[in-house]
Amino acid sequence: MTEHDYEPIPGLPGLLPPGERIVWQGAPDWRALARRAYHTRAVTAYFGVLGAWAVIAAVARGIHGPGDLSGVALTAMFGIVAVGLLRALAWGAARTTLYTLTNRRVVLRIGVAFPKCINLPLAVIGTVGLAVQGDRSGDIPLALVGERRLGYLALWPHARPWHVAAAQPMLRALPDAAQVASLIARACLEVQPGGQVAVPVTSAAQGHGLRQAVAA
């Protein structure tokens, strides 16, 4: 039993008020989250370079026994442990995360050690973005309008990278990200009918498609 077993509705801090209904619920794919939020591939590559350097150094000194390869073994061990810990963190984050879209708000139930629910009324969502990766999973950053500010560290890893001063909540590593982004955009446009949907463009800097629904 976990603390989430006491939720009246999974992923929500309380019962829905009259007139509000759930449109969609989902969670990150932990493997995709490990790659993109916890950078397991970069860490693997880093220890791979260190391991190659240790092998070159051992060959240069001359290998006379297993002891001469101790540096290589230690590098490999630390690399396996580091990547394993990062993957475990990603698994825990995905397991304790539940994103909810209703016809009035987006709710992020996040947090492993300190669970919390973040309510984002559709009226304060100015832009719905979509970044799709090669494995077809994707991230959906939500740019907020108005005076409401959220802390980057309080959101991470559910925050758009490099947007620290004006942190943007982000639904991460969703297998059906394109469909979910469309649902959120349509829900925002129902609340803010003056908005518009931008034509998908290609982000050359990141190498993936980017779609935005501007709701303000």
Score class of each variant (00 low, 15 high):
residue 2 T to M: 13
residue 6 Y to F: 11
residue 20 E to H: 01
residue 23 V to T: 12
residue 28 P to G: 07
residue 29 D to P: 00
residue 31 R to E: 14
residue 37 A to R: 14
residue 37 A to T: 00
residue 39 H to Y: 13
residue 39 H to F: 12
residue 40 T to E: 02
residue 40 T to H: 01
residue 49 V to N: 04
residue 50 L to C: 13
residue 51 G to I: 07
residue 54 A to N: 09
residue 55 V to S: 06
residue 64 H to M: 04
residue 71 G to L: 06
residue 73 A to C: 01
residue 73 A to F: 13
residue 76 A to C: 13
residue 79 G to H: 08
residue 82 A to F: 12
residue 82 A to M: 13
residue 93 A to H: 13
residue 94 A to S: 11
residue 102 T to I: 07
residue 103 N to Y: 06
residue 106 V to H: 04
residue 108 L to A: 06
residue 110 I to Q: 10
residue 110 I to E: 05
residue 114 F to W: 15
residue 117 C to E: 10
residue 122 L to Q: 06
residue 124 V to W: 00
residue 127 T to P: 00
residue 130 L to M: 12
residue 130 L to S: 08
residue 135 D to Q: 06
residue 135 D to P: 03
residue 138 G to N: 02
residue 142 L to N: 00
residue 150 L to Q: 05
residue 154 A to M: 09
residue 165 A to Y: 02
residue 170 M to V: 09
residue 170 M to S: 12
residue 171 L to P: 01
residue 172 R to S: 08
residue 181 A to P: 05
residue 184 I to S: 00
residue 186 R to C: 01
residue 187 A to P: 03
residue 189 L to N: 02
residue 192 Q to H: 10
residue 192 Q to T: 11
residue 194 G to H: 09
residue 196 Q to S: 09
residue 199 V to S: 08
residue 202 T to I: 11
residue 204 A to W: 10
residue 205 A to F: 10
residue 206 Q to V: 14
residue 211 R to V: 09
residue 212 Q to D: 14
residue 213 A to N: 04
